[in-house]
Amino acid sequence: MTHGEKRKPRFVDMDQPSVARMYDWLLGGSANFESDRNACQRLLDIAPSTQKLAQTNRAFLRRVVRALVEEYGITQFIDHGSGLPTQDNVHEIAQRLDPGSRVVYVDNDPMVLAHARTTLDENDRTLVLDYDMRDTESIIRSAKKVLDWTKPVAALFVSVLHCLADTDDERAPDRVVRRVAAALPPGSYMVICQLVSDDAKVRDGVTKLMEQETRGQWGRVRTTEEVARFFDGMQIEPPGLGDVIDWRPDAPPPPKHLRPTDWVEWGGLARI
């Protein structure tokens, strides 16, 4: 692993739920605390399909990274808001297909950083950066230490933009996406998906709960129309935007009447 710029160590607060640790629990991981598990249970009360959606999202990540390497020839990735290491991380998927693949992970959760650096210590084609995913300038500057900026890069925002609040400044999620797109080399790609719901009660209930549980480290559950606007100016790749369970599935996806009705992971792949 190539080490990023050193930042001041931060305390892991076991009493405050974190989005990364909650996601870890939903995927069946063990890097979480009682506060995270309790928050997940309250989340499941509002949106019962949450655990299934976490698994669906992880499967989408595997498929889209595989497609980028095999079909598009992409071997460089920046994973924004990478979360806790679990099975089939981006570098594992990509490097199985092309051992020369390089991956930059970006996160600022102290537990994520500790686990990632331990897990990736012997992999010299990965870089872990301790940055807020909105700090594009610092991320790109540091990523260039391991990525070749004369070749395309895939920027991943997989199930993380709902963690960013809508603002009137450069920290707004749509502006973050546009800024990253403008900074990447020609021929690069963008992967975006986030939690969406047509049910205002679910959108508002989850947003309120997560805002309280994470003490402000949350954004908003959005509508499909709002997420579609993140892709403005990009060329959407087949099969288009939609529920990620339908994105090039390895097996027939479930019929509509057996799918969640509360919320879904929605997005896709685009060429910049």
Rank of each mutant, 00 (worst) to 15 (best):
3 H>P: 03
6 K>G: 00
9 P>H: 08
9 P>A: 01
16 Q>D: 08
16 Q>F: 07
25 W>S: 02
30 S>K: 13
31 A>W: 10
34 E>V: 10
37 R>S: 09
51 Q>I: 02
54 A>P: 01
58 R>C: 06
59 A>V: 02
62 R>W: 02
67 A>P: 01
71 E>R: 03
73 G>Q: 05
80 H>K: 03
88 D>P: 01
95 Q>P: 03
98 D>I: 01
100 G>R: 11
106 V>Y: 05
110 P>Y: 12
110 P>F: 08
110 P>T: 11
116 A>I: 05
125 R>T: 06
130 D>N: 14
131 Y>P: 07
134 R>A: 15
140 I>F: 13
155 A>Q: 13
162 H>A: 06
166 D>F: 15
175 R>K: 14
175 R>M: 11
178 R>W: 01
178 R>P: 04
184 L>Q: 10
188 S>P: 14
193 C>A: 10
195 L>Q: 03
199 D>P: 01
206 V>A: 13
207 T>K: 08
210 M>H: 05
212 Q>R: 15
213 E>G: 06
225 E>R: 13
226 E>G: 15
231 F>R: 07
231 F>M: 14
234 M>E: 01
238 P>I: 06
244 V>T: 05
246 D>G: 10
249 P>V: 13
253 P>W: 15
257 H>L: 12
264 V>H: 03
268 G>Y: 10
268 G>M: 08
269 L>P: 06
269 L>A: 09
